[in-house]
């Protein structure tokens, strides 16, 4: 299996076969997670630190569970409450962490590029759990796994990503990943939330949701990121729901077996109809959460293998 990266900072540096490698391993972990005895020791002895500079419940819990199931010592640091308020810079925080000898560092930060910056300064594997409006690679990987298991393949699918693309790191990572795997991607949303530049990445852009949903295999809804918006991007939530909220009527335009996805947390009645979100025949939202743990286990497993190989090599060269 080839996965030659020290960090998982984004989907952009990954090659298609590396994406497949993560997903294949994640499939094994899905099976493990469904067993009554769901424990492995592949990360035993390693320390995983979750550093979240931005509020998160779901992603942090998912990474924590993934680490614990693989036997790592997991620590959560809620950075929002601590040093950042005392004026410590990101680099100082990195130096402090280095002294604690972590092996896996899971970072979420409100600024694009902050996780890359941190990765340059620490001696361990860094996983990007979301940086600003840039990337959220494990979310894209779990979405890919969900699609692959549900559709039986991850290529030549028509996939619609709908809603607040502009503020979404999930959309960027998905756009890159699904593009690398050779799918057709449509971006649907009001032009204030769908930057036209994305057309240059090969996506088709629709501001009419009904037109955009025609014959798609997958409908990915995004959360309206009210906390990232400064100023009016949409006139009101009710008009947004009317034009861009996913309901049964709009979904009827997609293929009959189209699946509905959402990275969570959902704004019911804003971007998605509550009943539809709960419809187990169409919605794979719960499955996405399950795949999230497995994908994160796979990613950390692969990075830990590289980390151990690297350390072994440096020990040998020192001995020699």
């Amino acid at each position: 299996m080839s996965f030659e990266h020290r960090h998982l900072l984004g989907i952009e540096p990954l090659k298609p076969h590396e994406i497949t490698a993560i997903l294949d391993l994640a499939d094994d972990y899905v099976a493990l997670n469904r067993r009554p005895e769901k424990h492995s020791d592949v990360l035993a002895g390693l320390t995983q630190i979750n550093m979240f500079f931005e509020n998160s419940t779901r992603t942090q819990a998912s990474f924590e569970l993934a680490g614990k199931r693989l036997g790592a010592d997991v620590m959560n640091m809620a950075m929002q409450a601590s040093s950042i308020k005392k004026g410590e810079t990101l680099i100082d925080t990195a130096m402090t962490l280095n002294a604690m000898h972590p092996d896996l560092l899971v970072v979420r930060h409100p600024h694009s590029g902050a996780v890359d910056l941190l990765a340059q300064k620490v001696n361990c594997a860094v996983l990007n759990a979301g940086d600003g409006k840039h990337e959220h690679p494990t979310q894209a990987l779990l979405d890919a796994l969900t699609i692959r298991r549900s559709k039986g393949r991850l290529h030549r699918l028509n996939i619609a990503i709908c809603g607040d693309i502009a503020h979404s790191r999930v959309a960027r990572s998905n756009l890159i990943l699904l593009g690398k795997m050779e799918n057709r991607i449509r971006l649907i949303g009001p032009p204030t939330l769908v930057p036209g530049q994305f057309a240059e990445f090969g996506a088709e852009i629709y501001d009419d949701m009904r037109e955009g949903l025609k014959d798609v295999d997958v409908v990915m809804m995004l959360r309206l990121q009210k906390e990232r918006m400064d100023g009016g991007f949409i006139p009101s939530e009710r008009e947004y729901y009317h034009r861009y909220g996913l309901d049964a009527e709009k979904l009827a335009l997609a293929k009959p077996d189209a699946i509905v996805m959402h990275p969570g947390p959902m704004n019911r009645g804003v971007e998605i109809d509550g009943t539809l979100a709960d419809d187990i025949n169409r919605s794979v939202i719960q499955e996405q959460v399950e795949m999230g743990v497995a994908v994160r286990m796979a990613a950390m497993d692969l990075l830990a293998r590289n980390l151990r190989a690297e350390r072994q090599a440096s020990n040998q060269s020192r001995a020699g």
Binding site: S112, G113, F201
Partner: peptide, 16 residues
């Protein structure tokens, strides 16, 4: 205000 990059493909990709 608040801009760190020029709008275009690059800024869109980097989320700036």
């Amino acid at each position: 205000k608040g801009a760190a990059a020029t709008s275009g493909k690059f800024a869109a990709l980097y989320g700036l």
